[in-house]
Design a protein around this nucleic acid. Structure first.
Length: 287
DNA sequence: AGTACCACCTGACGGC
DNA sequence: TGCCGTCAGGTGGTAC
């Protein structure tokens, strides 16, 4: 899931739920997600503090912190979600869906835990914020300076911040296919496999089109669609079911009908990832 | 500077 | 039913 729109939705979710409450305890359920900080230090550092505000850059979520008494320059939390991560705020026990059955009834201590929960923030209001990551491909950091973190990761500017001239300049530095360029986090941050497919579909560009071969019109269209796709996806809560049926996303499967023409959706490998596209209305591919 | 491939992990799915 | 290969929206490292 987590590309720019998903992470932005997580950010807003966190803002609406978990801010400004005292953290009673932080529980590291899998230290594999920690990077550059030990479980002990993270737990000690966060205990008694508050989550105060958030910022997103590309696929990274920064969570600023404060003490109950004052805003101070505490190290901040950086969350990355890998391919399968998300946040969940809840009051125990998990009360959604069907009644829990089986072992949980005899193990109330486990009923509180979500499947694949790797990090738990326990607030003094009885609620919990879970960082869930099925495949453990995400990461959690504690950093002093967010800008230094971005520099170290060599991340490009956030994809939604880019004005046309900046995007044109960045793509001008790109090489190879337009899809791999859009997904290159060092050039611009936030676009992954799914949304690069959607942006290229709407801009009618073949994922294998050479980025150097794009003319001014193509670049303008790409810029407009990039913004449109990311913004609309955020408004839709990054939920494919809430996105327009005219988008590729709901039809992103080999052999399905293109929602725009009579073509059939095809799948191809582009720099190691599966690209879905309509060969009939996306132009500029290899001849 | 590209691409190709592997690794990190877990789980879902289809074929046999 | 069960085993096995393949695939999955992430990044980062290697070799070429």
């Amino acid at each position: 899931m987590p590309e720019l729109p998903d992470v932005e939705v997580f950010r807003r979710y966190l803002n609406a739920t978990a801010l400004h409450q005292r953290i009673e305890e932080v529980e590291v359920l899998s230290s594999k997600v920690l990077e550059g900080v030990s479980a002990g230090r993270l737990e000690k550092e966060l205990r008694g503090t508050l989550l105060d505000s958030t910022r997103r850059h590309g696929k990274y979520l920064f969570v600023y912190r404060a003490t109950p008494a004052e805003k101070s320059k505490l190290p901040l939390l950086v969350l990355h979600f890998g391919m399968t991560g998300y946040l969940k705020y809840f009051k125990d026990p998990e009360d959604e869906g069907s009644e829990p059955e089986g072992p949980e009834e005899t193990r109330p201590d486990l009923a509180r835990k979500l499947r694949h929960e790797r990090l738990a923030f326990h607030f003094d209001n009885g609620y919990h914020l879970a960082y869930v990551s099925q495949r453990l491909l995400g990461s959690v950091h504690l950093v002093d300076d967010p800008d230094r973190f971005l520099e170290k990761k060599e991340l490009g500017p956030d994809a939604l911040e880019l004005r046309f001239q900046e995007l044109a300049g960045i793509l001008g530095r790109g090489r190879g296919s337009v899809k791999s360029t859009l997904m290159n986090q060092k050039l611009l941050a936030g676009i992954g496999n799914i949304y690069s497919d959607e942006i290229l579909f709407q801009a009618r560009l073949h994922p294998k089109a050479e980025v150097r071969g794009l003319d001014g019109d193509a670049l303008r269209k790409l810029h407009g669609k990039l913004r449109h796709v990311l913004e609309t996806a955020i408004e839709a809560g990054a939920d494919p079911d809430e996105m327009p049926r005219s988008w590729l996303l709901p039809h992103r499967e080999e052999g399905k009908s293109c929602p725009r023409c009579s073509g059939k959706i095809r799948k191809a490998q582009v720099s190691g990832r599966s690209a879905y596209f309509c060969p009939d209305c996306q132009k500029g591919g290899p001849s």
